[in-house]
Simulated assay, not measured.
Amino acid sequence: MTPPPPPERKQVLLRLDPAVYEALARWASDELRSANAQIEFLLRRALAESGRLPSGAAPIARRGRPPKRPAPPAAE
């Protein structure tokens, strides 16, 4: 059985001052994130701290190699 597809991600256009973007990109690099992931991380943290993060918001998708699944039992 295949898992359901993940919900579509909302795409938005964001205009930033170039100096702000450069600082954000450096910060993201320091934390091994993309600039996009850093923006989402910071927005979610601000929403949570203000009590405005929706309870139904999906967690941030983890990037990289998926976790190993246990091998199925060997047939005897």
Rank of each mutant, 00 (worst) to 15 (best):
W27T: 06
P72V: 08
E49M: 13
V20D: 12
R63N: 05
P5N: 09
R26T: 04
L24M: 09
W27Y: 07
W27Q: 14
S55Q: 08
M1E: 02
R69T: 11
M1T: 06
A75D: 08
E22A: 14
P3H: 06
V20G: 05
S34Q: 02
E22F: 00
A71D: 12
I39D: 04
L32I: 01
A74E: 15
A35I: 03
P59Q: 12
S29F: 09
D17G: 01
E8F: 02
P18H: 03
M1P: 09
P72W: 04
F41E: 00
R44E: 02
V20F: 05
A58G: 05
P54S: 09
R52L: 13
A74L: 14
P73W: 12
R69I: 04
V12P: 03
E76D: 08
A46S: 08
T2P: 11
P72E: 02
L24S: 06
D17T: 10
A57E: 14
P59H: 14
L24W: 07
K10I: 13
A37N: 10
R44K: 12
E31Y: 12
Y21M: 04
A57I: 05
R26S: 03
A37H: 12
S55W: 09
A57P: 01
V12E: 10
A35G: 07
D30V: 00
A71E: 15
P6N: 00
A35S: 09
R69V: 13
L47F: 10
P67R: 14
L14A: 05
R44A: 06
A48F: 10
